[in-house]
Design a protein around this nucleic acid. Structure first.
Length: 379
RNA sequence: GGGUGGUUUCCCGAGUGGCCAAAGGGGGCAGACUGUAAAUCUGUUGCGGAUGCUUCGGUGGUUCGAAUCCACCACCACCCA
């Protein structure tokens, strides 16, 4: 029986591992494609991702609770079943919505009152509710219910918020342990990842990391970054906090990020990522290449017969020109959004594969330097 | 042949004497977006670096001042013969 998480290569502080779950194995560093409402936006089907190296997806507790309801999804067999997704899925806890729907919520000790963004209905969600919903969704990995404080929050607020997040984490642990033993639970092996918070205060972050690692959870995330602070501040926090999380467990940097952010974070020991960028930017016509990001809706691509990226084996690059995809975007045709999203996901997965290879060759530092240099090319 | 309504900046369309280079859409151009309230949002869109200059079917007029008032002309739409 293989262990849950096994480091297979290291290069400096960068690590590459295999994460073994009941829903399959994942090679890290890994990028999880985002499927917030159990759908990859832009009309991308689960099968579109076959062959482009996708290993894991992310869905959202809050969104699926609000629509169509986690109990209904449980009756249908869980989020993986309805998506026809045979690989692992991580569910975010709704904690980020505490942040992003700030104008629609009120935080209390037991949880948060939201107003649904769908119909305005009052919703209560705390650690118990989040865990129950995630158990119904039957994801591979459930995330702890946390508060993602704004980057600009002051020290007093962050201290209070982090303490509450720690108390919530304890409740999450107790709750998932009960849920995983229930007869009707679809995935009785659901894993719980804890989330480190503390905004840009390194001492609060470190203290929090030390506290939560005592719980000996199967994985730990760094949350509350890329929410308004500078890149330098983000890297500074990662430098400070990652070494206080267990090295022999997954480290997940939530919601990040750009290719450059990922390259920098891997160097600091992070091995799980997710971000809306490849799909959102795809829908907005921004596509990634090794030599930087292109805005395909720019006039200069109007007659460009070349593929988005030479040598890319994705559906878009194998079959269509930049000029045609630009035309589709201008015409607001779904196919345009779809092709750009598929290409970007393909790019991200290829980036992760290259990262893994560089770690395996113990040449990560020079690989990263060159990759970032190339990304700055102007197209 | 007679009557009525109309012609506005790339398009649609508001504007009936100064606050009008001209509302609002659309389209165009560019930008933003990091655990997705996001196929969304923002900026810009006559020329000029600027005091300015040239525009509202055409020509002429009234007026200190005209897209707006008057005259004629051109074209378009509908109605009556």
């Amino acid at each position: 029986m293989s262990s849950l998480y096994e480091i297979v290569a290291e290069s400096g502080r960068a690590k590459s591992a295999v994460f073994n779950t009941v829903h399959g194995s994942v090679k890290t560093p890994v990028f999880m494609n985002v499927a917030t409402v159990a759908a990859i936006k832009g009309g991308v089907d689960s099968r579109d991702l076959d062959g482009i190296g996708t290993q894991m997806a992310l869905a959202n507790t809050y969104h699926l609770h609000v629509r169509t309801g986690d109990e209904q999804i449980a009756r249908l067999g869980g989020v993986r079943k309805i998506m026809n997704w045979h690989k692992p899925v991580l569910t975010d806890s709704g904690g980020f919505q505490v942040f992003s729907l700030a104008k629609r919520r009120k935080i209390q000790e037991e949880g948060v009152y939201f107003n649904s963004h769908v119909d305005g209905a009052k919703i209560f969600m705390g650690p118990k509710e989040s865990m129950r919903i995630q158990s119904n969704l039957a994801s591979t990995v459930a995330m702890a219910f946390d508060e993602c404080a704004p980057a600009l929050a002051d020290r007093a607020y962050v201290t209070e918020s982090v303490n509450r997040t720690t108390r919530w984490l304890n409740t999450c642990v107790e709750t998932i342990n009960v849920l995983n033993k229930k007869k009707e639970t679809i995935n009785k092996n659901q894993l719980l990842f804890g989330i480190n918070q503390g905004a840009i205060f390194d001492d609060i972050r470190i203290e929090h990391a030390k506290q939560i690692r005592e719980l000996d959870l199967p994985g730990y995330a760094v949350g509350g970054l890329a929410v308004g602070e500078s890149h330098e501040q983000m890297y500074f926090i990662l430098d400070a906090v990652v070494e206080h999380l267990p090295r022999n467990k997954p480290v997940y940097l939530m919601g990040v990020g750009t290719p450059e952010n990922i390259l920098e974070a891997v160097e600091r020991g992070v091995d799980f990522f997710d971000c809306v960028y490849p799909t959102r930017n795809g829908r907005h016509g921004h596509v990634y290449t090794e030599n930087g990001r292109l805005n395909l809706s720019n006039e200069k691509y109007k007659t460009d017969p070349s593929p988005i990226e030479e040598g890319c084996d994705c559906l878009a690059c194998q079959n269509y020109s930049r000029a045609y995809i630009r035309h589709l975007l201008k015409a607001k045709e779904m196919l345009g959004y779809r092709l750009c999203s598929i290409h970007n996901l393909s790019f991200y997965n290829r980036l992760m594969e290259n990262i893994r290879n560089a770690i395996a060759c113990d040449s990560y530092s020079s690989f990263k330097k060159e990759a970032i240099y190339k990304l700055k090319d102007v197209n």
